[in-house]
Design a protein around this nucleic acid. Structure first.
Lengths: 205, 205
DNA sequence: GACAAATGTGACCACCCAGTCACACAGGAG
DNA sequence: CTCCTGTGTGACTGGGTGGTCACATTTGTC
């Protein structure tokens, strides 16, 4: 939570500072991100930063929070369709759109990746909170598929969640560095999801 | 590659220094690991360390290399059975044994985790080499299963490798912190693998 | 013993860091 | 013009870092 002074700033200056911080926290994990680097890039004095935020961790939390707010609103259209389409189709949409987010906002994306890897104790509390949110989102999806009868009754739901979580993370994280085209990767996403679908789908046919 | 002086050391001292370094690199990623901390823990002078290793990166590479050598030899018994048992059974063995390694040698395990996450440019070259080794190991397994006809022809092999890699990593990483019993987790490993098996197994039946 | 080669040492260097604080500057109110 | 409050500033502090080097100590050899 920034100090009031930060919100009194003219919008463009405020955004500029935010973007500089975003970039630094994208390029380095929290512990290695340099506040000095941020204020230099932003062209403001070190002391000014401490008028806006209590300390480095305060700034970091604000950035992470804002990024996740953005990401959730970006994914909202997918959830809106949850009632209309089938479970596995929804999953494909979900991962494709996550991938688009990562492509379109690479700094935001890298911040979330660094965030999950963080070892800082104070930061881990936030991590657990986020994980819980993801968990709830996904459990909802699974139950939805389960009720609709498209998921085999014999699969362990916890294991299913686990598989999707692990694979989903890897699907998004590992491909930003490489220069793979967006369409090409969406095809790959679908062949990966096809394997999982075969593993989960009801085995009556 | 340590300097010759390091290997001239009495074995116990050499191992003690190695263990202190191992521990530090387990508890912190490379960039944050402190050489000062290592020499203090080992009870030797800073200068002595520079008689054994060229610099911090040299020490780190040696630790990582040794750890991977250990891990590979630990997993060897699994590969030795490759000819005797079925593909999916072999996979189960593989992940169970990886899990045992992580349980039995938590420091070694954490070093490998930190290693994969490292962003250091010079270190990344080593990472790619290791990834290539894993890739080759696994492709061999897959082909073996493919020849034996237990894997569906229509699955994308690259996608299959990707799924197992992602899930395998998560299966081990996410459960070390929690105090889950070894046996309990091995059951969970198998229910996860069951999903993947359904996704891959030949669909003739 | 004497000499040399190999090892061990820790104060020291240059550098980077998060965070502070005494001060300068703005602008609105009276 | 004078307060006063809210902002902006950057030199400075104390602490940490990887790496160095002139010197001390141990070891092996004759």
């Amino acid at each position: 939570m920034p100090k009031p002074t930060f919100f009194n700033l003219p919008a463009d200056k405020r955004e500029h500072i935010f973007n500089c911080a975003l970039r630094e926290f994208a390029e380095h994990p929290y512990e290695q991100a340099s506040l000095t680097e941020i204020v230099n890039a932003a062209g403001i004095a070190k002391g000014s930063m401490y008028q806006y935020f209590a300390d480095k961790k305060d700034l970091y939390k604000y950035v992470v929070q804002t990024v996740y707010q953005h990401k959730r609103s970006f994914l909202q259209p997918v959830w809106d369709k949850a009632g209309e389409i089938e479970f596995f189709e929804l999953l494909s949409l979900y991962y494709r759109r996550s991938w688009r987010f990562a492509r379109q906002f690479p700094y935001e994306h890298r911040v979330t990746v660094n965030f999950w890897d963080s070892r800082d104790e104070a930061v881990r509390a936030e991590i657990l909170r986020e994980r819980e949110i993801r968990n709830v989102e996904f459990s909802g999806l699974l139950e939805h598929g389960s009720r609709a009868g498209v998921i085999a009754a014999e699969v362990d739901q916890e294991a299913a969640w686990f598989v999707y979580h692990a694979v989903g993370r890897a699907l998004i994280d590992n491909f930003l560095e490489q220069d793979v085209s967006a369409e090409e990767h969406e095809v790959f996403i679908d062949s990966v999801l096809a394997i999982l679908e075969w593993g989960l789908r009801s085995r009556k046919g």
